[in-house]
Simulated assay, not measured.
Amino acid sequence: MYSYIFETARLGFRQMAQADVPAFHEMLSDREATRYWSTPPHTTLSETHTWITESAATATHDYAILLKPTDEVIGKIGCFGTEIGFLLHPRLWGRGYGTEALERFLQLLWEGEARVATADVDPRNERCLRLLKRFGFRKVGRAEGTYVTWEGICGSVYLELRRPSSK
């Protein structure tokens, strides 16, 4: 059906497509998956359709993450300018897929023109902060009242990772 743009041992990555709406809606309507997301959980397939369309129009790199060999859509990873964002279905948390996806995505960025990757993370999202720290992201700032999530107003921890020096 679709071919991978890049892959790892367990994951394939390709452009998001409208056929992915049901899979992404399952994730984006899940309160746990969107607990630290910058928008409330989706309530309609139409919202998810619009989200995929807008992501495709605004992201520098934006990819669906597929689980091999079934090609089930299990998440997304992308960049808006220098800012990395990712989402993984909660039923797959703790299995190393986020680490595997981020490692390969950063390789892709460093193979290109990127010199820095940034992240804007809700300070309560300890799982995400731990993952980014393992890759060497460093805190460069903090702000309060930056997003309204379904849990209320939250702040941001700003992180940065510089492109590794060539050896």
Rank of each mutant, 00 (worst) to 15 (best):
V148L: 14
E32G: 03
Y2R: 15
M27Y: 01
T60E: 10
F105Q: 02
S156F: 02
S38C: 09
A23V: 04
R130C: 10
A9W: 06
P90C: 11
L45Q: 14
Y2P: 05
G98C: 01
M1Q: 11
H49M: 10
V157W: 05
T39K: 14
R104T: 01
R35Y: 06
P164D: 12
L28W: 04
G85S: 11
G112Q: 09
T70G: 07
G112I: 03
G152V: 03
P41T: 09
D71G: 02
C128M: 11
I153E: 04
K139S: 11
I52R: 11
L108T: 04
A57G: 10
Q15K: 15
D20Y: 03
P40N: 10
K139N: 07
L88G: 02
G94R: 08
H25S: 08
A17Q: 15
H25G: 04
I52S: 07
V73A: 15
R142S: 11
L108R: 04
M27T: 10
L131F: 00
R115Y: 07
S55M: 14
V121P: 01
E151C: 11
Y63R: 00
G112P: 04
R162T: 12
V121C: 01
V140P: 00
A114Q: 10
N125I: 00
H25C: 07
V116D: 01
D62Q: 14
I153L: 12
L45R: 14
D71S: 13
A57Q: 15
A114G: 00
T50K: 15
V157E: 15
T99L: 12
A114D: 11
D122P: 01
I65Y: 07
P123N: 08
D120T: 09
R142C: 04
L88N: 08
L92Q: 07
T53I: 10
F13T: 00
L159T: 06
E151A: 13
F24Y: 12
H25L: 09
H61S: 07
P123H: 08
L108N: 06
A23W: 01
G136P: 06
I65R: 03
S29M: 10
E7K: 08
T50P: 00
